[in-house]
Design a protein around this nucleic acid. Structure first.
Length: 259
DNA sequence: ATGGTAGTCTCACTA
């Protein structure tokens, strides 16, 4: 089973690119972030026509996450527990009802603006809530793929210029420690397992010709519980969609899980 | 280069 994560930066603006990629890459499950629409505005029909079921957690203008699956989607949970007042649509979790069921989540971690800002504090609080959810899922023993835009580059070699970006947002020690806490719980970074060399990126800023200079960061991740890691056979970044016209600033990251 | 670009019921905000 091929499971991918992709921050599409607007499902409506990206629909032709997404439909083309679904046809080419043929993922079984897709975890989408930054759909930027209420659920009523999601172009469901075009995607369902390619054989996908859809679970949505959207909002107007900002954020928005979704799960696409060729298998039935069950036990859908919207929102990350721990803050009932949080209205930002950044988390959806469900069980993919394949022969051997697998839990998945589509996660859009707040970018955090600048280290020390109010938005950065919201990011750290979100990560604390995410850690609690990771603990629960790890303890359940479920096979789970927790995918999304984490807005954290795990190590200096996941960044095009670690000197320039030293202790800036996406790279700071305090953010990396939160990610490290998740890994230390027993989660595996699927991409890193098969690609130990570094300098492989999933996001390139629209500005300053970052894509053409390969000035990227690896901030989109698939983190797997031990039960899912036991079934992990491959993982890579698919750079093709980033090279297209009207591309998202992120490109898909995928992994293969034994069915 | 505190710049640059893209998306959104915008003329500002988020990323």
């Amino acid at each position: 089973m091929k499971i991918a994560t992709w921050n599409v930066n607007s499902i409506k603006a990206r629909l032709p690119n997404i439909l083309e990629w679904l046809g080419d890459a043929k993922p079984d499950v897709v975890l989408l972030q930054e759909t930027k629409t209420v659920d009523e505005g999601f172009p469901a029909m075009e995607i369902e026509d390619l054989g996908y079921n859809i679970a949505l957690h959207g909002q107007k203008t900002y954020n928005g996450v979704a799960i696409l699956s060729k298998f039935p989607i069950e036990d859908i949970e919207r929102g990350l527990p721990g803050n009932d007042g949080d209205e930002q649509a950044r988390y959806i979790e469900a069980v993919i009802a394949a022969h051997r069921p697998i839990r998945v989540a589509s996660i859009y971690v707040p970018m955090g603006s600048e280290v020390g800002s109010e938005k950065f504090e919201y990011k750290l609080n979100f990560l604390d809530r995410l850690i609690k959810r990771f603990e629960k899922i790890r303890e359940s023993g479920d096979a789970a793929v927790m995918g999304g835009d984490y807005n954290i580059a795990p190590d200096d070699f996941d960044v095009y210029d670690p000197i320039k970006l030293h202790e800036t947002v996406l790279c700071s020690t305090v953010e990396r420690k939160k990610l490290r806490t998740m890994m230390n719980m027993g989660y595996t970074d699927a991409f890193r397992t098969f690609n130990p060399q570094g300098h492989q990126y999933s996001w390139w800023d629209y500005r300053a010709g970052a894509w053409n200079k390969d000035n990227g960061l690896r901030i989109d991740h698939l983190l797997l519980t031990p039960a899912a890691t036991d079934r992990l056979s491959a993982s890579d970044i698919d750079r093709d969609p980033r090279a297209k016209e009207k591309a998202s600033d992120h490109t898909p990251v995928w992994c293969m899980i034994d069915e």
